[in-house]
Amino acid sequence: MGKNYSRPQALTDVVTHYCPGCGHGILHRLVAEIIDELGIRGSAIAVAPVGCAVVAYDYWDIDCAEAAHGRALAVATGLKRVQPDKIVFTYQGDGDLAAIGTAETIHAANRGENLTVIFVNNAVYGMTGGQMAPTTLLSQKTATTPRGRQAATEGYPLKISEMLALLNGVVSVERTAVSSPKEVLNTRRAIKDAFMNQMERKGFSIVEVLSMCPTYWDKSPVDAARWISEEMVKYFPLGKIK
C-alpha cells in the first residue's frame, strides 16, 4: 500500500517553535499543501508578519520576505507590482493586520491589489506574552486586560473582515476556523480559493482563520478548540462574508 499522507514538499522538515495545540502548525501545513496542489512552489512568495509566525520562512520551502510589524501588505504590494506573474501572499496575525497595520490592510484591499491574505485571528498577541489584541473578546482576560476586556475602556473586538468586505477592491472575504477536522478542511478549501482568485487575477482575497492559542488563553488544547466553536464564533461568525 502506498503512502497517502506525508509532508508537503513546500513544508520544510523541521520542528516548529509553536506551542502545543497552537493553530499555526495546522495552517502552515494547509498553505504548504495548497502550494503543492496548485504547483506554485516555484512562483509563490510569502510575506511573514511580526508575531508568532515571524519565522514562517523557516517552515515554508519558498521565497519569503519578513516585513516590519503591520507592513506586510505594503511589502507584498511592492513584490507583486513588479512581478505580477508571481503568487504573493501575506500571513498575518490580528495585532499585525488589524492594529498596527490597519492602514496598510485597508488601503491594499481598497487598491484591489491582486494578493492573498491569510489572517490568523487568535484574539491575543502571542509572541509578546498574551496582551490584548484588537480581536480580543469582551471579558477576555489578557496580560493587558487583567480583569477582562471592557467595551467602555478598550472598545469592542474589531471586525476587520466585515469592514474589508465593504470595499469595492475586495473580491473575496471568508471567515473559517481550525478548531475541528471539519473546519480545517473548510479552511483548506477557502485558502485554496483565495490563491486561485489571485492566479485568475481577480484581486484581493482574505481568509480570516479563528485559531487556537492555548498558552495565552490559559486552556488545554482541547478546551481552546472548544472555546472557538462555542464562544469565538458568536462574535466572529464563520462563513463567506463576501
Partner: peptide
C-alpha cells in the same frame, strides 16, 4: 501610498523583488 510608512515598505518589497 496611504502613508510614508507604506511607501517605504512598498519599496522594501519591490527592491526585494
Amino acid at each position: 501610498s496611504e502613508s510614508e510608512l507604506a511607501a517605504i515598505n512598498m519599496i522594501f518589497g519591490a527592491s526585494a523583488a
